[in-house]
């Protein structure tokens, strides 16, 4: 049982690490600010959730897991808010997105 949990947490942590690095690559590779935000949200959601889930499996049913859940909830609520504020500020500042289709 213990080995099973360890393996699962290994997989989750490795997955989180992978998605985190992919998001970093996207931050460098994407052509403009708005597309970079999508890359950032890959690290922010998948990387963060998988890694914290891996840590939760390690901690078991303790107060540490409760704290991890709170960290995850805070990040899940605050990160889209910050991203939206950033996007809105950029658009109002006149930074036009390079788009293929504009259906505004």
């Amino acid at each position: 049982m213990n080995a099973l949990i360890d393996t699962a947490s290994w997989i989750l942590l490795a997955g989180g690490a992978l998605f985190s690095v992919i998001g970093g690559i996207g931050m460098l590779r994407m052509p403009d600010f708005y597309t970079r935000m999508h890359a950032a949200s890959v690290t922010d959601t998948a990387g963060m959730i998988l890694m914290l889930a891996g840590l939760m499996l390690q901690a078991g049913l303790t107060l540490v897991t409760a704290k991890l859940v709170f960290v995850m909830l805070f990040l899940l609520i605050t990160s889209p808010t910050a991203t939206h504020a950033l996007a809105r500020a950029a658009l109002e500042d006149g930074i036009e997105p390079q788009v293929d289709h504009d259906k505004r």
């Binding site: 597309t35 999508h38 949200s41 939206h84």
Partner: peptide, 24 residues
């Protein structure tokens, strides 16, 4: 916020019930 949280779509502005969404 749900739109923004999902990678690939970001709400850029929310004006009087209309959401302007940037999708990848």
């Amino acid at each position: 916020n749900s739109i923004t949280l999902t990678p690939g779509t970001v709400t850029v502005a929310l004006r009087s019930g209309d959401a302007i969404v940037h999708a990848i």
